[in-house]
């Protein structure tokens, strides 16, 4: 059910600012915010699954940004659309025994609470160690990531994929 108090478009940056490339999702949404280019609600999130489900409940469209670790080249950007198929759980920085993004998506789906449009942007990280800096590869790719998110937001808004 769309919730009138929820915005049309919600953009969530997930990460931990002290764990190397895990900060990428947070940094991306901070750039989006300071650019002030889109009319969307922008939030930073730790990635804990149950409160993620709460955050996106009732939203029409959600863009989620998070660092991933899938063995690819650091800095690679992935775009996932969980509406059509499940998210590969193993690439996210949450234990397979924890409750984070992929579990939250699947549980929202099971409970019929998954927003109609969910787009996930993953950026391949190099290191997730506490106390390390953002890697050069991820840092260099951030502007591109932000551009892709802006494009996606614009397309969601102009193609009428938001709304009935």
């Amino acid at each position: 059910m769309p919730n009138p108090s929820q915005p049309q478009l919600l953009i969530i940056g997930v990460g931990n600012p002290f764990r190397g490339d895990d900060a990428a999702g947070l940094l991306a949404v901070r750039r989006l915010k300071s650019a002030g280019l889109i009319s969307a609600k922008i939030v930073e999130h730790s990635g804990e699954g149950a409160s993620l489900m709460e955050a996106w409940k009732g939203a029409r469209a959600v863009i989620l940004i998070d660092a991933v670790s899938s063995g690819g080249r650091p800095g690679t950007i992935y775009r996932l659309e969980p509406a059509s198929k499940p998210v590969p759980a193993e690439i996210f920085q949450g234990s397979t025994h924890a409750f984070s993004i992929p579990q939250a998506i699947e549980m929202s789906r099971a409970l019929n609470e998954l927003p109609r449009q969910v787009i996930i942007f993953g950026i391949e990280g190099r290191n997730f160690q506490a106390g390390t800096e953002l890697s050069a590869e991820v840092n260099e790719t951030l502007p591109e990531l932000v551009r892709r998110v802006l494009e996606e937001a614009a397309s969601l808004q102009t193609t009428g994929r938001i709304g009935e």
Binding site: N16, E48, S69, E90, Q93, G94, S95, T96, H97, A98, F99, S100, F128
Partner: peptide, 9 residues
């Protein structure tokens, strides 16, 4: 505390 301290068990 697996969720925050470690990535995979």
């Amino acid at each position: 505390c697996i969720s925050c301290a470690t990535h995979f068990l």
